[in-house]
């Protein structure tokens, strides 16, 4: 299954992937309208210190601890992609406690959780990878 992989040596900490993610999941057609004046809540996050930086999003584990720990059965795996059914999620944060990568976070409002779902709902090609100016994240089979 294709996943998003990080090539850390090329990450420039420009944060474009975060804005692309926020926009792709905004459900809107115009990025300016979608994000102007908005504190974005992307599902991919940059860690940076000195000249080292990289983007972290869900690894879509084969044995996803989040899915096994979810108390409401809101997390499921479909064709390898780990999804959250935000209708079932009650916002108990157990998945945040379980995820070893810190790749699950509260959606806007904090009542339900959100995570990267590889843009399966946004056309199937991860927007973050498309936006990366230096191919520091790639979407491929490894």
């Amino acid at each position: 299954m294709k996943r998003v992989y990080v090539q850390e040596q090329w990450c420039l900490a420009c944060h474009l992937c975060e804005y692309a993610c926020a926009f792709a999941n905004s459900g809107q057609k115009d990025m300016s309208k979608a994000l102007k004046g908005v504190k974005i809540n992307p599902r991919i996050r940059i860690e940076e210190r000195d000249n080292i930086s990289f983007a972290v999003n869900c690894r879509h584990c084969e044995e996803p601890l989040c899915q096994k720990s979810c108390i409401s059965g809101a997390i499921s795996v479909k064709d390898g992609v780990v999804h959250i059914d935000q209708d079932k999620c009650v916002g108990c944060y157990t998945c945040v406690l379980a995820c070893p990568y810190g790749a699950i976070m509260p959606a806007d409002g904090g009542h339900v959780m959100q995570k990267c779902e590889l843009c399966t709902a946004n056309g199937g090609e991860p927007a973050c990878v498309a936006a990366c100016p230096n191919r520091a994240i790639v979407f491929e089979e490894r």
């Binding site: 990080v6 860690e47 210190r49 810190g102």
Partner: peptide
């Protein structure tokens, strides 16, 4: 010292990050 401030993968070695993030 770094991970104490807040949980982050930056605190791990480059090799471990490659295992976690680069397959």
């Amino acid at each position: 010292e770094l991970i104490k401030t807040h949980p982050q993968l930056m605190a791990f070695s480059r090799r471990e990050r490659a295992q976690m993030l680069a397959g």
